[in-house]
Amino acid sequence: MSEAELLPPGRDPTLATAVHRRLREDILSGRLPPGLKLKLRDLAESYGAGASPMREALSKLAAEGLAERLEHRGFRVAAAAPGQLAGLIRARVLAECAALSEAIRRGDAAWEDALVLAEHRLNRVARSLDPGRFTANPEWEAAHRQFHRALLAACGAPPLVAFCERLREEAGRYRALANTVAYPDRDVAAEHAAIARATLARDAPAASALLAQHYERTGAFVGADLGRHTA
């Protein structure tokens, strides 16, 4: 018997998955701000789904920590207090440095080639769409994600990589809420190059230290900007 045959009548797994994905993207991007009450009727109308797939999507978001279940009162978007950012950055440093050390130990020539290519592609894309003012470039953001994924790809622990990805998305939510896209007096490309060089040299302590500094610098900028927005 298939999974679809085991589902309750009227349950559409494809619709529930699509609604969950769209809600998740809207929370991570900041389009649905922290603390917003997620009213079932309004959401069903906005996302074109019935009550059953919408409840399932919200339950999944609550399990992921992106929504909060209110006792007898539905759901709301999870908080994103500036004070929580430091803990998130620390968790990301601990998890990704462990994964990077394993990737350096286990990685083969194909992994090295993929990392070199990811950095090359990142360097070829402009961070800003507008030379006169900093406007985030989605192509750069995608290449940036791929570079950081390439660093960890050889660690051989898919659950750890998935955890790192979840932390990355949560950190990205804070960045979106703070609207931080530029970092004065900081050369992000040079930071990426230094991380890549140490990684390819198989120097795990140096690569881990550089990756930690990279995230801590970003966290400091985002935290300061978020504090100004929420003050």
Rank of each mutant, 00 (worst) to 15 (best):
E119K: 09
R92T: 12
P138S: 12
E64Y: 01
N137M: 03
R133A: 15
R168Q: 14
Q84T: 11
W140V: 03
A126T: 11
E139P: 00
C97V: 06
P159E: 12
R73F: 09
L115A: 07
L117K: 13
P138Y: 03
C155Q: 11
G107A: 07
A91R: 12
R145V: 10
A95W: 01
A162W: 04
R105S: 14
P159I: 06
A157Q: 15
A98H: 10
A79V: 09
G156I: 10
G83D: 13
P82F: 01
G132M: 06
G156E: 13
L167G: 10
S59I: 07
G132I: 02
A67T: 07
E112T: 09
P131I: 04
A86M: 03
G83Y: 05
F163I: 06
C164K: 03
A110H: 07
C97W: 00
F134M: 11
G107C: 01
K60C: 11
A63L: 12
L151W: 04
A153C: 03
L100M: 07
E102W: 11
A114Y: 01
N123D: 14
L167C: 11
A157D: 15
G132Y: 02
R76D: 06
R149G: 14
H144C: 08
A99Y: 02
A80W: 03
P159A: 12
A79K: 13
L70C: 08
